[in-house]
Amino acid sequence: MPRPNRRVHPGAARVCAALFWLALWALAARGVGQALLLPAPWQVLIRWAALAVTADFWASVGASLLRVVLAFGIGTVTGALLAAATHLSPWAGALLGPVLRVIRATPISSFIILALVWLPGGSVPVLCGALMVLPVVWGSVSQGLRDTDKGLLEMAAVYRFSAWRRALRVYAPSTAPAFFAACQTALGLCWKAGVAAEVIGRPGHSVGTRLYEAKIYLQTESLFAWTLTVILLSVALEHALAACLRAFAPRVKGV
């Protein structure tokens, strides 16, 4: 006799999974027996709570957040504009396409070290974050533009849509799904690149600098606590972006 298909609530499944991994972490920490190598979850939580009441914590979080948002904005706008340029002009495509592909293939550490030679420490995470976002957005938007329905473009030509109307009413809605997906992928990359650049560049207030200090002074609990902070910020920003895109999507699609 077949067993009835019992459905598990997705929220409950997530909580169970989280509890499982936390328990495994706690067991591993207990097995290792040295907080210096692997602190227990509650030790990290206590350290995080202690950090969260300091002004320096919020100054570092605020500064890193600002850099990531700035990098994301610059990378997104530049990527979308370059995609439009390379789509419209074969010359721009021939000129910029290889450069953007090189940027996509270059390891982030190379950019960070080069940027440290040229720029002050605080602007390095912004540049490196933007350089991570740019090729992702450029690639997706370019593909979206290429995939725009040729039939609709012909219709727009017959009915003499202006360039602006064609961009807003045909290209933008056709490209929006690819653009939105690229934004969500690029945001994660932007965080990783930004924090990595902060760790190496060590600007005054930043999460990356605090991570570096925690490593130097062998404060493993702090290292975990700052990493937890980065994860929480990344998730919060992803949710904020998703909410923005949800609010923005209907506008792009016609109104």
């Binding site: 039939g151 609709l152 012909e154 219709m155 017959v158 009915y159 003499r160 009413r169 045909v170 809605p173 792009v252 699609k253 016609g254």
Partner: peptide
């Protein structure tokens, strides 16, 4: 000025009929 009815409808699905 040419107006065309294509073999396919070629309507903007993200716009209203009026638009």
């Amino acid at each position: 000025r040419v107006a065309v009815v294509f073999q396919e409808d070629r309507l903007l699905t993200w716009c209203t009929l009026e638009q």
